[in-house]
Amino acid sequence: MTPAGTLLCATDLRKAYGPTKALDGAEFSIHPGEVVAVMGPSGSGKSTLLHCLAGIVTPDSGTITYAGRELSAMNDSERSALRRGEFGFVFQFGQLVPELTCVENVALPLRLAGVRRKEAERTALHWMSELEVADLGSKRPGEVSGGQGQRVAVARALVTQPRVIFADEPTGALDSLNGELVMQLLTEAARSANAAVVLVTHETRVAAYSDREIVVRDGKSRDMERIV
């Protein structure tokens, strides 16, 4: 069933929270290096789709295949390991650990994967300079601006050189200028690393940074590319 060359692919996903159907037969696929925007009105199930794809939430039914492996067949710790090693995450907010310095925050995924502290922080600094926030290394998240913090978060998502980056409203808390900057840096870094980006957003200008767009309405997905 998996279309040739896809990295992450989901078919017929269903997920209900109590009586509300968050996903009702959603489909998804993404190629390496591709940026796919997931759009749709509030409550349409965008975030649930992202959480399912990332293995954070287990769908009630449907299949998710990542690089030939079936996600629903993995147990929790295997999926955790997958998220640690192959996936990166950027959220709207609440993601930087407030008591760690910025560089420690960026180094965190590497440290979780078992990399030694010095080496992890060296790599972290490299990615921070890619995102033009290298000078914030020793500051704590509370001491930097929202845009800077989000760029630190993007650096953290990239630091393990993941193959898929999941971004859930990454610009939701930013003004348009900072939002554009974050999107530009994120997509550029992802493209140069040949990482795929699943971008959940409700802003079309943010979605315009994608290569392709999927609209989720009432738990069903539509690939807008095939319409045209």
């Binding site: 710790s77 996936f87 907010f93 407030p98 979780l112 994967a113």
Partner: peptide, 16 residues
């Protein structure tokens, strides 16, 4: 709560 969830999202072990 939110921070904890996001830490879990990028693969932090519960034991950690």
């Amino acid at each position: 709560r939110k921070l904890l969830s996001s830490l879990v999202a990028f693969g932090t072990k519960r034991s950690t």
